[in-house]
């Protein structure tokens, strides 16, 4: 058990080390010169400030303010949008693939795969901008403001950011589900179950989806990291005052390191829970 725990902690530890090393990098290269001793000192300082996070401050101009109770407000906001969008996109991908594989004809599926291809190739920037324009257009037509354009600390919008963030992941999850479902449906056990007289709709959720879990895990790994940079763009364009825009505004080596670690840990924990879940349900090992 202890070995297991250690194994799971290795990648996150490595990543934290790497973040610290990157955090000090602007000190290392100044122009064409390389200041190695300054780099070592900066790295040491960063590690020291990680040990005492309550002493980290942020500022644009003086006076400096302590980072720590302050940062949790935008942090919780951003994280809730991030995770809600993630779960929403898994759910939507699951539902859409269920509907598509059960009720759509072959030509309809080909059309859908074309749409998926186009949607998948759109940059996140374009999608967010289009949604922003859609909100404006909707407001002009009907007079209903779906989302305020500047957010105050007390009234924060959730609906539009979550939708905007979950479009690309939904498409990717949907594609992933379809690919692994189509592979899985041709397996012997599905044919056997159908031959026994089980309706297809019954086989799907309890047997087929369960076997797609592993590929979904690997997919969600890369999707989660993609969503992090999408979140950045989203917060910038929609003026959301979230965590990533906080890091951007007050960017300093300490804030960079602390911010990235704070983004990393919950994502990592989610993946760990997912991993244990797969182990319990399917007895399959996945690599974090």
């Amino acid at each position: 058990m202890k070995v297991e725990l250690f194994k799971n902690a290795v990648p996150v530890f490595l990543t934290i080390c790497m973040i610290v090393l990157f955090g000090a990098l602007p000190i290392l290269i100044v122009g064409t010169e390389i200041h190695f001793s300054a780099y070592v000192i900066e790295t040491k300082n960063l590690i020291l400030s990680l040990i005492q996070p309550y002493e980290i401050t942020y500022f644009i101009t003086k006076p400096e303010r302590p980072l720590f109770p302050e940062i949790f407000n935008p942090y919780l906001y951003s994280m809730s949008i991030y995770f809600l969008a993630f779960f929403l996109s898994i759910l939507l991908g699951l539902l859409l693939s269920f509907v598509t594989i059960n009720f759509f004809s072959k030509s309809a599926k080909r059309f859908i795969s074309f749409i998926v291809f186009v949607l998948e190739s759109l940059p996140d920037l374009f999608i967010v901008v289009m949604i922003q324009m859609g909100v404006v257009w909707f407001f002009k037509k009907t007079g209903i403001l779906v989302m305020p354009f500047t957010s105050l600390p007390d009234e924060r919008s959730y609906f539009i950011p979550i939708i905007a963030l979950s479009i690309l992941p939904t498409v990717q999850f949907f594609k992933m589900f379809m690919l692994s479902l189509e592979e899985e449906v041709q397996m012997d056990y599905v044919v056997f179950a159908r031959a026994k007289g089980m309706p297809f709709i019954e086989i799907l959720p309890f047997h087929v989806y369960r076997n797609t879990l592993m590929s979904i895990f690997y997919q969600s790994k890369s999707i989660l990291w993609m969503m992090l940079s999408n979140l950045l763009v989203l917060e910038y364009i929609l003026n959301m005052n979230g965590f990533t825009s906080f890091i951007f505004t007050y960017l300093s080596p300490e804030l960079f390191v602390v911010g990235l670690i704070m983004l990393l840990l919950p994502t990592y924990l989610l993946l760990l829970v997912f991993k244990i879940f797969i182990k319990k349900l399917n007895n399959e090992e996945v690599v974090l």
Partner: peptide, 14 residues
């Protein structure tokens, strides 16, 4: 481990 760092943030920072 390198994959886990969002590239845009890193590029912006550096």
């Amino acid at each position: 481990a390198f994959q886990y760092i969002p590239v845009v943030l890193l590029a912006y920072f550096l």
